[in-house]
Simulated scan of single mutants.
Amino acid sequence: MTTQTRPATGPTPGTALGPQAQRAGWVVTALVTAFLGFDAVTHLLQVEQVREASAELGIPDHVIVICGAVLGALVVGYLIPATRAMAVVLITAYLGGAVAVNLIAEQPTLNTVFAILAAVLVWAGAWPRDARLRALLGA
């Protein structure tokens, strides 16, 4: 007696996606890394615009540097395959904090949407390239 198997309808959890998806992931990763990296550097250097925006929110200067260091470390972790999955989750949490601060301070809606979009792009860049993330969510 032979056993019938169902053909797979897509990649099984934890398997690689196609080369086009991987290339798209790299492009999104490059863009989001450039943006978040720039943001981290402007915080570390305490650029005047960052200091002014932070002062409006009641954020002291020393916290600006801490935020820049945390974001910078997370961006580096995002680029290292062994730490990418954890960095994606932690960057999402960091950006969730930005969303909360923007909402509490009643900042323009675009500020909140921008932080959410950045988090979505972080996931979009890593998703096609990291089977662990897909397996984590059973996709």
Score class of each variant (00 low, 15 high):
Ala105Ile: 07
Thr109Met: 11
Ala118Gly: 06
Leu110Ser: 14
Asn102Lys: 05
Gln107Glu: 12
Val101Asp: 05
Trp127Met: 02
Gln107Asn: 14
Trp123Met: 07
Arg129Ser: 02
Asn102Thr: 07
Leu121Gly: 06
Ala124Tyr: 05
Ala100Asp: 09
Trp127Leu: 05
Val120Cys: 08
Ala100Gln: 11
Ala119Pro: 02
Ala98Leu: 05
Val101Thr: 14
Leu117Arg: 07
Ala98Tyr: 01
Ala126Asn: 05
Val101Gln: 10
Pro108Trp: 11
Ala98Arg: 03
Phe114Gln: 13
Ala98His: 03
Ala98Gly: 15
Glu106Pro: 01
Asn102Phe: 07
Phe114Val: 12
Ala100Phe: 15
Arg129Met: 06
Val99Thr: 08
Val113Gly: 05
Glu106Ile: 04
Trp127Val: 00
Ala115Arg: 01
Asn102Val: 02
Gln107Thr: 15
Arg129Thr: 01
Thr112Gln: 09
Ala115Ile: 05
Val99Tyr: 04
Asn102Ala: 05
Val101Met: 14
Ile116Cys: 03
Leu110Arg: 13
Pro108Gln: 12
Ala100Gly: 06
Ala100Thr: 14
Val113Lys: 07
Arg129His: 01
Asn111Ser: 14
Leu110Tyr: 14
Leu121Pro: 08
Asn111His: 15
Glu106Val: 12
Ala124Met: 11
Ala118His: 02
Trp123Ile: 12
Gln107Arg: 15
Asn111Ala: 13
Trp127Ala: 00
Thr109His: 08
Pro108Ala: 13
Trp127Cys: 00
Val120Gly: 04
Glu106Tyr: 08
Leu121Cys: 12
Pro108Asn: 10
Asn102Arg: 10
Gln107Val: 13
Ala115Cys: 06
Ala100Pro: 03
Ala118Lys: 06
Val120Leu: 15
Ala118Arg: 03
Val122Ala: 03
Asp130Ser: 08
Ala98Val: 09
Arg129Asn: 12
Asp130Pro: 02
Gly125Val: 04
Asp130Glu: 11
Ala118Cys: 12
Leu110Gly: 09
Ala118Asn: 09
Glu106Asp: 15
Ala115Val: 01
Gln107His: 12
Phe114Pro: 00
Glu106His: 14
Trp123Cys: 09
Ala119Met: 04
Gly125Tyr: 02
Val122Pro: 02
Pro128Trp: 00
Leu121Val: 07
Leu117Phe: 13
Leu103Ser: 07
Thr109Trp: 12
Val99Ser: 04
Pro128Cys: 03
Val120Met: 10
Ala126Glu: 03
Ala126Arg: 02
Thr109Gly: 04
